[in-house]
Design a protein around this nucleic acid. Structure first.
Lengths: 195, 195
DNA sequence: CGAAAACTACCTACTAGTAGGTAGGTAGCG
DNA sequence: CGCTACCTACCTACTAGTAGGTAGTTTTCG
């Protein structure tokens, strides 16, 4: 457990909150400095440039996702329950406003205007998530625990798109329950014999 | 046909392109001035503030959507074909890069950081689109031309979310065909006896 | 052990450049 | 004339980033 500095983590956490709210161009070093109580020059000590900061954030976001999915699959082996848990995770984050949006989904929306290093990180996240979902759906279809009407890869992309779009809608309506409402029928179509 | 000035329209078109690329904070008056060949002070003559500009853009975007859907329903009365045409419209826009993202979907992603007047316009667009889709799906279900497994409103929200999420994915992968690939099974699940 | 050297984390003070916006003037036209 | 559309020239506030300094801690080594 390396805990060399708490400040770097605080900066990353603050940056994540700002990006989730307003995107890459929606915050400045001054904003971060104010909320965590240091001077903005000190942020440059931890992250020389804004690109370094967001790049680190995106890389760690992907690492956490990989670790989270690995852990999830150890505890919850059944594909239907995996999809439900994944959707439930975001439903919870949105409902308690702790992480009301996926950082990479948000950054993807402004991808053409992003520094290339960050764009690459965002792409990597999409590829990982899509790959993981494809594997889960493939396994579920083979077992008969999931019903699919297209190739696993296509079903996975559609599922991921619905999750990201539902985040957008939840935000647009300002209603935290919208996400769960949208995901319910999406899950139902994939999972037979529900209820 | 009021055509009082071409410049104001040019400014709006440039702003739309910039917003679609990088969001509200991803462009400046200087950027617009450069591409359309006037000085940035002249933009203030047409749109006193950036909020005015984007507010006008969003309002007109909604007006165009309302007009477009009304026109569409006159030409294409069948619900399955309406959904297919709507999805096909965006597939085309993304494939020829003419309008590779919905302005309001993009602005929704940074909604918490948006000036309130603009946020309200974005919300209005989501409400209109959701309402229109709900009507189409309701009619299709009553006619038996669409198969639904949840309330029309919920199916409409899920469909809209998938469309928006698919835009995100198309952008993340940098592959213009991703959108159509995702929408195909989504439409198939709603439309029986396809093929 | 203890002093010197090096490193960490922060600071003040500054830079060049850009943001949105304003003041005031001018060219062309009905 | 008065209006529209544009201009030059400017403003203030803020952007990311730099220079250089200072405490306090850690490492190195005689």
């Amino acid at each position: 457990m390396d805990k060399p500095s708490n400040t770097a983590d605080d900066i990353l956490a603050a940056a994540r909150t700002f990006i989730v709210a307003g995107g890459y161009n929606g915050f400045s070093y001054a904003d971060i400095a104010e909320v965590i109580g240091i001077r903005k020059a000190s942020i440059h000590h931890h992250f020389p440039s804004k690109v370094d900061l967001v790049q680190t954030l995106v890389r760690r976001y992907l690492e956490d996702a990989v670790a989270g999915m690995t852990e999830l699959e150890r505890n919850v082996p059944e594909p239907p329950e995996l999809l439900r848990t994944y959707a439930g995770f975001w439903a919870q984050c949105i409902e308690d406003a702790s992480r009301p949006f996926c950082v990479c989904a948000l950054l993807a929306s402004e991808l053409p205007a992003l520094p290339p290093e960050i764009a690459a990180g965002v792409r990597a996240y999409f590829q990982f998530l899509s790959g993981w979902l494809t594997g889960v759906i493939e396994r579920g279809a083979a077992q008969g625990t999931l019903t699919i009407s297209a190739a696993p890869r296509v079903e996975a992309e559609a599922f991921m798109a619905t999750v990201h779009g539902a985040m957008l809608s939840a935000r647009a309506y300002g209603d935290v329950l919208t996400f769960g409402m949208i995901l319910a029928p999406t899950l139902q179509k994939l999972i037979p014999t529900t209820d």
